[in-house]
Design a binder for these strands. Structure first.
Lengths: 217, 217
DNA sequence: ACCTGAACACCGTTCAAGT
DNA sequence: ACCTGAACACCGTTCAAGT
């Protein structure tokens, strides 16, 4: 017997709801739920059991997709780096071709991501992922962000706007300034009234650093 | 009956061992044990029960001296800032009177502390202490470090070696660079072979920043 | 192949009871 | 005043059992 279109749709939806987690969706659902939970209550408050509750599954189910709690957090961190790299690429795509302006756009995209998703950003700098080689895809995601920074610095050097010499040192320096600023804001060592003000004040601190690595002419 | 001096000493020591924690020493002992435990196993591995075990006391005893686990960590952090401020003062005492050199000495003392006590440094930047006004003595200890930085920047401006304008912006900028660098090292975004190399490479990154805030002449 | 139910060792916190 | 013993609710992890 044929079902009318509305009923068929309802059936499909019900079947989907019931079996969705049998098709590899649980992994995604757990990462998404964990990210949301962290952004709401902070990283310290995150429990595997709470994440499972949010997704509507018993907590040992998570172990089918993640070796342990650290692996779940690593997935949250990795997703963060992917989103960050995408945001930086978008910002660079919209920027002019003047190296100094491009570095500014890159740094603003970085700070903007961090102040929008402070808890996820904190996970991305968590102390758990130092064990070498445990999370290679996380390390690749980090490297992608670093390469974006290094490429822009290289471009600036090639055009003669930035100091010649070790590209890496300038790229690391840029990362230091960006991350250091974000941390001071996140830990309330600096009080800012809004995300806009956070970026505005960042540029105040960033300009002298740019001056320091620029070629005077 | 009189006891011979060696026996009296033994008795006093035993009595001291047995009753020392009744004189307010338990607080100190807990902070010291917590700092050691963190430096050994990382902040995440720290439990109140383990700290109590190390000190040789049942774990609820800690609650006589700290409202909760966070308060104990706040004490560890506060002690860290005090030690750091002392180290900076010592470094400035031994430095020349040339502003730029003094800023270098200050920054080196900061980085040196952080790479010597990475876990304690991490606690000092823990996310738990943001609740306003909960740990006023911790906030005072942080402010003491900041004031040391600000005073040196002011001195450099007064002598015409650093850009005029908002002292605070330059002081915050310096803090950003120092903290950002320490974090990149601690989180293994930069690999350094030794503490000495860590400071050496820091100076490489620091010099351009100094150039950026220096007055050319 | 994927999830549940039950169990284990451990944790932070509370509180009545001991000295 | 300061510490202990016992209890509570909760956690991460494991594993046999269900579909």
């Amino acid at each position: 017997m044929l079902l009318s279109p509305p009923m068929r749709r309802a059936k499909v939806a019900a079947a989907k709801k019931k079996t969705a987690y049998h098709h590899g969706d649980l992994r995604r659902a757990l990462v998404t739920a964990a990210t949301a939970a962290i952004e709401e209550a902070g990283e310290g408050a995150l429990t595997l059991r709470e994440v499972a509750r949010r997704v509507g599954v018993t907590h040992p189910a998570a172990y089918r997709h993640f070796e342990d709690k650290t692996a779940l957090l690593a997935a949250v961190a990795e997703e963060g780096y992917v989103v960050l790299a995408d945001a930086i690429e978008r910002a660079l795509g919209a920027a002019s071709s003047r190296p100094r302006e491009r570095l500014r756009a890159l740094a603003v995209a970085y700070v903007d991501f961090a102040v929008r998703s402070p808890a996820q950003y904190a996970v991305m700098w968590g102390p758990r992922f130092n064990t070498d080689g445990r999370f290679p895809s996380l390390e690749a995601a980090i490297r992608r962000v670093y390469e974006l920074v290094a490429r822009e610095v290289e471009r600036g050097q090639a055009e003669g706007d930035l100091r010649p010499g070790q590209t890496r040192d300038l790229a690391i320096g840029l990362w230091v300034v960006g991350h250091g600023y974000v941390e001071l804001v996140a830990r309330r060592r600096i009080r800012v009234k809004s995300r806009e003000k956070a970026i505005e004040y960042f540029l105040t601190l960033f300009e002298p650093w740019l001056d320091g690595i620029a070629v005077k002419r």
